[in-house]
Design a protein around this nucleic acid. Structure first.
Lengths: 327, 327
DNA sequence: CTGAAAGCGCTTACAG
DNA sequence: CTGAAAGCGCTTACAG
């Protein structure tokens, strides 16, 4: 903007030095005559002065902002993480800038976010490989990568265990798992949790886990494959909401009533669980807390400190209509 | 970071002046001996130099970034706008920073985004009132405010008209409108479009429009009120997807089969339309294009120029299972 | 082909 | 109580 009002404009108008204006305007407890302070404040107001965050950043080496990289905005799971992170950042008087890096190549992406624009980066998606080159402090969120000891995750294993336990309590003994994509570490943990709970409950293994790919289409396919295999089961744990929806659809299309004939529990909770017929019983995860905790950690721990944290509370079973007593 | 590598570090290592390093590194077509260029590039690489975006911004008065303010991340409509904006920004080599301003008060919000951090602001939500104080160029997106001639919107009227026309073609003559919240200008335009199409088709007015509040709960309530009123109808146009879902649920709960007894069309399209039973027929709107166009305009038109644009193409009817021949 | 200098708008010791 | 000066890391005329 050509007509930007700077500190020197205010200083000139108030007939003081810019340094004094700077101190007064930032509300520092600086000893200054009331008269002078008023003059400065008045002029700043009159001229419509607004501090230049960029210039301040350069001087103080603090961006006053955090970044959050997610794989996509089209997912309520990330929406919840973002909300938590934004609230926590606002608490620190920092802005939260979220991006999916849509349209960016790896290198540009790095340059763009690693140039002093942010004081820290929360990474819930995007290219993991380049992390080593990052100069800005970062933290993996909802994602653990071996060898990178900078992450906060949820208790995915526990979520699966809660899901299994719920079905077991309802009398189910033959439970299948519709998992996530092979590459995702959350998928691995959810599978591990499923297996441990299954074994602990003394349930028979129903063969290799099948992937629902975290999508509706994938969940549907997974369920179709399970049905085709002729395997008998009465309970389903789906690794996330979309795949649960797909599994539900496939089951219904095959004529299996939910929950009379088969019960389904999904990991994660969102409005979509209330929209399908029947409404899905879910395991609600502390996603907002995860986002908030990410910012907290990023802003308090040293950039090179190891952190492998699990945000475990609160988690709860949201009982709806997709689960019932085993037939 | 204490160990930040700066231009002077590279200059020292390559035994040249920083200005030369600056020119070479930015790939400017500067006449420089190949040998020197190689030396500079090598040293920059060796030291792991990364440009400091903030410092560059201060000097060039270009942030290399755009901001996008949305009311919430928990809405696929905004997800699509964001994706379009991000892609368009990347094209310009700019980062796109999206925020919902969660946890910010009005004033801080203003200061935070108006301090040189962004070259322009796309506003799809947040406090409209303060716009006049904004120094950074801005553009309203999916939103028109009287007196603020800086906006890009969709052709909401046409969307409603397409919805009505579709129902009319199927033989429906008694069509109700489940509108959006009273305050929303998109709601007004969709209502206007509904009315104009209704009148053009020679259909009787079925009383005052009812608001579904753009939410599932609101849509359900609206439908319940319509049903209670005893009004007869066979077609429903819902102003958005969630309210359509709510209306659908309420209709089904009242024993009205969809689409045998009542047909429902929703404005906007997203995966949720395929998840409900029956799948919803929708009017797909060019949300991605809207976001992209917002960035295009923001980056090309003068900050004070008037712009009132309608992104009209492409729009299409997505025929699914919630509409059928009038009974 | 390369360098020296000024300056973007701030903040922060250091003086007085 | 207030001011003068240096400097954050760059870029960009201007010299040579």
């Amino acid at each position: 903007m050509s007509d930007r009002v700077t500190l020197v404009d205010v200083a000139r108008a108030a007939e003081v030095d810019v340094s004094l204006v700077s101190r007064v305007l930032r509300g520092q407890q600086v000893k200054v005559r009331d008269e002078t302070r008023t003059r400065i404040l008045d002029q700043a107001q009159r001229l419509g002065y607004r501090p230049h965050a960029i210039a301040r950043s350069l001087k103080t080496a603090k961006a006053g902002a955090f970044g959050l990289v997610i794989p996509t905005f089209d997912n309520p799971v990330f929406a919840q993480i973002i909300m938590g992170a934004e609230a926590a950042a606002a608490q620190l008087n920092c802005v939260m800038m979220t991006t999916s890096g849509e349209g960016w190549s790896r290198n540009n992406w790095l340059e763009a976010l690693d140039g002093g624009r942010v004081d820290g980066l929360l990474i819930a998606g995007g290219p993991t490989l380049e992390l080593a080159n990052l100069r800005v402090p970062y933290l993996l969120v909802n994602r653990a990568v071996p060898g990178i000891d900078r992450s906060v995750v949820l208790d995915d294993e526990k979520a699966s265990r809660m899901a299994v336990d719920h079905l077991v309590e309802l009398g189910h003994r033959r439970i299948v798992f519709v998992g996530g994509p092979a590459g995702a570490d959350t998928a691995n943990r959810r599978l591990a949790g499923f297996e441990s709970a299954r074994i602990r409950a003394g349930l028979e293994s129903l063969g290799d886990p099948v992937s629902g790919n975290y999508t509706v289409a994938g969940g549907r396919l997974a369920m179709q494959r399970i049905l085709t295999s002729g395997m008998t089961f009465t309970g389903v744990v789906a690794a996330n909401l979309p795949s649960a929806v797909g599994a539900l659809q496939a089951a219904q299309e095959a004529g299996l009533h939910v929950p009379e004939r088969v019960s389904i529990v999904a990991i994660h909770d969102a409005e979509i669980a209330e929209i399908v017929q029947p409404r899905l019983t879910t395991i609600q995860m502390p996603l907002t807390q995860l986002g908030a905790r990410g910012i907290e950690l990023l802003s308090t721990i040293p950039p090179s400190a190891e952190v492998n944290e699990v945000v475990g509370q609160p988690m709860r079973l949201v009982l709806r209509d997709s689960t019932g007593t085993a037939p």
